[in-house]
Amino acid sequence: MAMHRITFTLNGARERVEVPSNQTLLQLLRERLALTGTKNGCTAGECGACTVLWNGEPVNSCLVLAVECDGTEVVTVEGLAHDRQLDPVQTALLEAGGVQCGFCTPGVLLSARALLDRNPRPSDYEIRDALTGNLCRCTGYLRIIEAVKAAARAAEPA
C-alpha cells in the first residue's frame, strides 16, 4: 500500500509524518500521535465523538483520510485551551454540569467552539442544530445547550 509524506499544522505546531493511504485522521491522531482526546465511536460519521476542527470547520475525523490533511490545519480538543486558560466553552460545560461519562465531550466542545466562531449569538434552535451530529447518551443535552448559551453570553462585551 502506498505511503505518503504529509506536513500539517496540529494544535498550532507543525507535524511531519508518513501515513498509509487508508489511515484516517482519527487513527493518525489517536494511534500515532497519542492524542486520545479525540474519541473513536461509530466510525461512520453518525456519533460525532471524533469531531475535530479542520481548517476551522468541524469534521468527523473518522471520515477524513490522513493523507488529505497535507498542508491543512487541525485542532483537537487538546488544542482548545490556550496559555493554561480553558476555552470559554470548556469552562461553561464544566460549570453547567454538561459532562457525565465524557465520551462525547471533546466532540461537543469542538462543534460548540465552531458554532460560536461563525455565529457568536446562536438561538436555542441554532445550538441544537449545530450539535445534531454529537450524540450524548448521558446528559439529555439540556445542560450542554445551557453551557453553549452561557459561553456565548460570557463572550459578549460587558
Binding site: 500500500m1 502506498a2 505518503h4 498509509p20 493511504s21 487508508n22 489511515q23 484516517t24 482519527l26 487513527q27 473513536n40 461509530c42 466510525t43 461512520a44 453518525e46 473518522c62 483520510l65 493523507v67
Partner: peptide, 14 residues
C-alpha cells in the same frame, strides 16, 4: 451496519 473497528481496508490513494 456499523463496525467497532476504525480501520479501512487497504487501498492506494491517488
Amino acid at each position: 451496519m456499523l463496525t467497532a473497528h476504525p480501520g479501512l481496508p487497504e487501498f492506494d490513494y491517488i
